[in-house]
Design a protein around this nucleic acid. Structure first.
Length: 207
DNA sequence: AGCCAGGCTACCG
DNA sequence: CGGTAGCATGGC
């Protein structure tokens, strides 16, 4: 598995996940920051990553960018702004990301939880207890918003593992996650890069 | 012009 | 436990 990581890194280079709003290169709302593992470095940016993780559930990132942009313009990408936004208005803003009624509800539930954290890192079980936060979303939040070394398993992960001949690609989520964490160094920078590379590679693989 | 996207919940057997 | 319908938009 470390071999696969090295190959992907050589082939594609550092990915600079998780994308954040701001100083967008041509035509995009979010930008990447390859080689900079110190982000996010503010509470609002941790919130932004978490919101993005919820919005991207089974959804193309380009659609998520539009929704994030709308939220930002409406001042709803801060804990306070998001909390004060009416549910119906929120749903309208995130419409481009699809499943907007469900996701608006998920964001409302999440923001209440987030405010209660007062800056500390949530634990996995807390996240999983929230309606709308499943395993992949919880792990994405922990890995990319809080720099916790944990493997995120998604469809691309399984797809690339399968193509690379890595046994266990079809294990249950937590089994595969633990297997990966056991194979890889316990280092959030590598976990972030590996997952981002798997997505990159997975996109070039036909289903 | 379909097919698909950085899933989750509810419910079934 | 594993399997599946429903949720919804926009890009390609």
């Amino acid at each position: 598995m470390q071999e696969l990581y090295k190959e992907l890194l050589e082939k594609y280079g550092q990915q600079g996940w998780w994308p954040l709003l701001g100083s967008a290169p041509e035509g995009r709302y979010t930008s990447y920051h390859p080689g900079n593992y110190s982000l996010p470095d503010s509470d609002d940016d941790r919130l932004q990553v978490s919101v993005g993780a919820i919005l991207t559930q089974n959804t193309n990132w380009l659609n998520v960018e539009k929704a994030l942009h709308n939220l930002s313009e409406a001042g709803a990408l801060s804990a306070r702004g998001l909390r004060e936004m009416k549910l119906e208005h929120l749903a309208e803003l995130i419409r481009p990301s699809g499943y907007y009624n469900q996701k608006a509800r998920k964001l409302k539930i999440f923001i209440q939880f987030f405010a209660g954290l007062e800056g500390r890192m949530p634990d996995r079980e807390e996240l999983l207890s929230l309606w709308g936060i499943g395993r992949e979303t919880a792990d994405s939040i922990l890995l990319y918003a809080y720099q916790k070394s944990i493997m995120v398993i998604d469809n691309y992960t399984r797809r690339v593992f399968k193509a690379a001949g890595i046994k266990g690609y079809d294990l249950a989520y937590d089994k595969l996650r633990q297997y990966c964490e056991q194979q890889m160094p316990d280092e959030y920078r590598i976990m972030q890069e590996f997952h981002a590379l798997l997505v990159k590679a997975g996109k070039e693989l036909n289903k």
